[in-house]
């Protein structure tokens, strides 16, 4: 009987009100065990206050070959950045 446990991706919120961040993956039979294992594997030194686990098979990722067409449209829109605009020094901080 093939019993390899599914792979889970682990996301952890650090101490400082940050977003959950991907830290790695692990194998577990179900979500509950995945959280317990994540506690042992990824927070041995107090690295987090909250854990999310997502079955790796449930994640849909963008394809690396789409890199060009996916992100190119934003490259030419420099006016979306504040540094595009020259505000005279006399106006003060803005």
């Amino acid at each position: 009987m093939k019993t390899e446990w599914p792979l889970w991706e682990i996301f952890i919120r650090g101490q400082h009100g940050l977003s959950h961040r991907h830290v790695g993956s692990l194998h577990a039979p179900d979500a509950e065990m995945a959280i317990k294992n994540a506690r042992d594997v990824y927070t041995r030194r107090n690295e987090g206050v909250s854990i999310w686990v997502v079955e790796a098979a449930q994640i849909t990722a963008s394809s690396p070959s789409d890199k060009g067409p996916m992100y190119e449209p934003s490259e030419s829109k420099v006016y979306r950045h504040p540094s595009f605009y020259d505000i005279p020094e006399d106006v003060g901080a803005m």
Binding site: E4, S25, L26, V41, R44
Partner: peptide, 26 residues
């Protein structure tokens, strides 16, 4: 105990890295 537990953790980080190359843990 803490040190030996770390070694288990290090093994797991590395297995996960290898698995992204298309080989399974088992």
């Amino acid at each position: 105990l803490a040190k030996v537990q770390d070694e288990a953790g290090h093994g797991l980080y590395l297995y996960c890295a290898a698995e992204t190359l298309g080989v399974s843990r088992d």
